[in-house]
Amino acid sequence: MGRILERYGTALAGLALIVFFAAAAPNFLNPANLLNIGKETSFLAILALGFMLALIAGELDLSIADVASLAAVACGALVQWGYGPLAGVAAALGVGLAAGLFNGFAVTILHVPSLIATLGLAAIAKGLGFMLTQGVAFVGRWPTEFTGLARGALLGVPNLILWLIAVSALVWLLVGATRTGLHMTAAGEATEAARLAGVKTDRMKRLGLALCGLLAGATAMLLASSLSSAAPGMAGDYFLYAIAAVLLGMTMFDPGRPNAPGTLVAALSLKVLGNGLVLMGAPYYAQDIALGAIIIASVAVSAAALKRAAFKV
């Protein structure tokens, strides 16, 4: 029983949350509402999966939200200046990837701790976002080919949910079923031992940070497409939630380790919580209080796993 709670405690708490809102919140089980939750989870989960990849490689990327905002602004600039949707997509992914590569360079070549390097890049990204926009969001005149990336649907399933499934599957496969994933994990969990065993640890750290940046760019592209706007700081709200999703995810499935299924379930639980409380008519401040309480309670359920995680991270 203890082992089940340790591995699935947080997931069970998430399930309990869904059951509670299904009973207590009017319209929670309405299919349109469930699709809304799925779509809203996609942004957070993709960003969190990026953060998770950096963490697997043993590095922290605190620039994810600001890089995502800058990537959205770069995407918006190109689309609004008439360069077309493809250029916008390339700009978002390119800015994200470039930011990730820069972080990797700073950490492995310049030997700046990732905490500092990514904080520095976050400030630069925020400044560049304001420089490009002068504080004014890019709005209007978004081609439907671009907005369709996030707003469209295939066989009734919203594209955002399809993107989420595709990215999650790729990340899960990379981490769990490839040699590269194994090397990234080894580089993150025991850098020196992995290096002595022949793993190119610096390369793995660069890869983790680059993929983190790339997924921040993907989140930016989907955000801009979904909201048909791009503004500096638009992804800022996701920063703490993404970290919370990864840390909560570490308390389930493979306790103590960042893992894709856990991150996904945690992101979904956080969004279910926000949606359910709105449907119940809870005041806005109650949502923050409930969020904090549920994070603490969930982690407490898997306290043993968290203790192990503390030694590993």
Binding site: P26, N27, N30, A32, N33, N36, E40, F43, L223, S226, L227, S229, A231, G233, M234, A235, G236, D237, Y238, G274, N275, V278, L279, G281, A282, P283, Y284, Y285
Partner: peptide, 26 residues
Amino acid sequence: WTVTLLNSEGALPKHAEQFDALIAKK
């Protein structure tokens, strides 16, 4: 009237999400 008071915390995605939730809440 029954009132649901929400705070988007200055975040555009959250602003959009809250709109969706209020529509779902009917």
